[in-house]
Simulated scan of single mutants.
Amino acid sequence: MDWNRVEGNWKQVKGKIKEQWGKLTDDDLEKIAGKRDQLEGKLQERYGLQKDRAKSDIDDWYGRQKW
């Protein structure tokens, strides 16, 4: 997975992230700033997910994106 694509286009990707995970706030998204580990942590915090589940959810989301 080439997460650099997400980091490099974070301003455009934030909207897609928010569509998928609506509990994330704008402040959360600013702090995440495209960093995958930060996104995983916020998903665990906001949704009560286990680390492995957060990782797999991100992988699934990433795989569905039309780059």
Rank of each mutant, 00 (worst) to 15 (best):
W3N: 02
R5G: 00
V6Y: 03
E7A: 07
E7F: 00
G8Y: 04
N9H: 04
N9I: 01
W10L: 08
Q12R: 13
Q12E: 11
K14R: 12
K14V: 11
G15S: 01
I17V: 12
I17W: 01
K18H: 05
K18V: 07
W21E: 05
W21T: 11
G22H: 11
G22K: 08
K23I: 11
L24M: 00
L24R: 01
T25N: 08
D26R: 00
D27M: 09
D28V: 08
D28W: 06
L29R: 06
E30N: 15
E30I: 15
K31R: 15
K31L: 15
K31H: 10
G34L: 01
K35G: 05
Q38D: 12
L39R: 04
L39K: 03
E40L: 13
E40V: 08
E40H: 13
K42R: 15
L43H: 06
L43M: 11
Q44M: 14
Q44C: 14
Y47S: 06
Y47L: 10
G48A: 04
G48N: 13
G48C: 03
L49Y: 10
L49G: 04
Q50P: 13
Q50F: 12
D52E: 12
A54L: 13
A54F: 08
K55R: 15
K55A: 07
K55M: 08
S56Y: 13
D57K: 12
D57F: 09
D57G: 11
I58P: 02
D59N: 10
D60H: 07
D60N: 08
D60C: 04
W61A: 02
W61E: 08
W61R: 02
G63L: 04
R64K: 10
R64W: 03
R64N: 10
Q65Y: 01
W67V: 12
